[in-house]
């Protein structure tokens, strides 16, 4: 081989080696000098979270919550709804925070448009999104507070827990982790997070009164306030034209009242609620009625 060529090759190797060594040392110094001190606790908390990034805790993703729960002493350890008690316990033990009781909750739909046979006041043409449809004269439903039915909640649900059946959202109680994304998405604000132990469910969210409701829906709240009067536990209030139930007071009072609100409600919008089966049964029967 040509010795000139060998010389050139060795020269190149040496030169590149030196350049590599130079930058290597530079990088090593830089890595040492500008090292970001990471809190291993954050990493550990992050690993214990479900990493679904649903945003139900109110922070931007799981990492956002991990950082806040570790650095801010005021952020409670039980904000991860999908993780339920198990994750909350782990986060509490890692961060040394007090473990507050974690209630089993679920999202419920506060509307029964299908059972109420709410008609459409106009045909909606355009971008298929509930918010968009609501911009045009309050949405296509005759009741301006009712479910629009274009499935924006189902699309937004990070856990695929909402299924649209005949244009009405049905929440799968086994999949729903009550992250609250649907609550924030729904332009009609008909989604609500409710305790799994709740005894009563009020599937109506209208703010209209009397005749205005009678004219559009068969099972809409007319604001007679009978429920407020009959509840022995004072758990039912009627504020801003909407029935509000203090589930804690209701559960504490117990079954002694024999669900008097359910039997007295003239519009049948008070339904007994015991977790899962009942929701499914009612929606199925509603679909049959409407069908």
């Amino acid at each position: 081989m040509d010795p000139e060529l060998i010389k050139l090759a060795i020269g190149g190797l040496v030169l590149l080696g030196c350049v590599g060594l130079f930058f290597g040392i530079g990088l090593a110094i830089a890595a040492h000098k500008f090292a970001v001190e990471s809190n291993p606790l954050i990493e550990e908390v992050l690993e214990s979270l479900p990493l679904a990034n649903c945003g139900g805790c109110g922070y931007p993703g799981c990492e956002g919550y991990a950082i806040e729960v570790v650095t801010d002493p005021d952020v409670p350890a039980n904000l991860c709804y999908p993780g339920k008690e198990k994750v909350a316990e782990r986060v509490a033990s890692l961060t040394g925070k007090k473990m507050a009781a974690m209630e089993d909750t679920i999202a419920v739909v506060r509307c029964s448009r299908i059972e109420g046979r709410v008609s459409h006041k106009h045909r909606y043409v355009g971008f298929s999104s509930c918010t968009a449809a609501s911009l045009g004269f309050g949405g296509p439903s005759a009741c301006q507070y009712s479910c629009v039915g274009l499935g924006e909640c189902a699309e937004a649900c990070p856990f695929d827990a909402i299924e649209m059946k005949e244009g009405f959202p049905i929440i799968d109680p086994d999949t729903c982790v009550s992250c609250g994304v649907c609550v924030k998405t729904c332009p009609k604000e008909i989604m609500e997070i409710q305790s799994m132990k709740a005894r009563i469910w009020v599937p109506c969210h209208t703010k209209d009164l009397g005749k205005a409701v009678m004219g559009v829906c068969e099972v809409g709240c007319i604001g007679c306030k009978m429920c407020v009067k009959v509840c022995p536990a004072d758990a039912v209030t009627y504020e801003n034209n909407i029935v509000k139930i203090d589930h804690k007071a209701c559960i504490e009072y117990g079954p002694a009242c024999e669900e008097v609100c359910v039997s007295k409600c003239p519009r049948d919008i008070f339904l007994p609620y015991q977790g899962r089966q009942v929701i499914a049964r009612d929606v199925e029967s509603g679909l049959k009625m409407a069908g």
Binding site: F127, T131, L135
Partner: peptide
């Protein structure tokens, strides 16, 4: 395309 509707939605959000 209902572009004005898109704009109204965009403004709102």
């Amino acid at each position: 395309r209902p572009l004005v509707q898109f704009v109204r939605l965009a403004k709102m959000k």
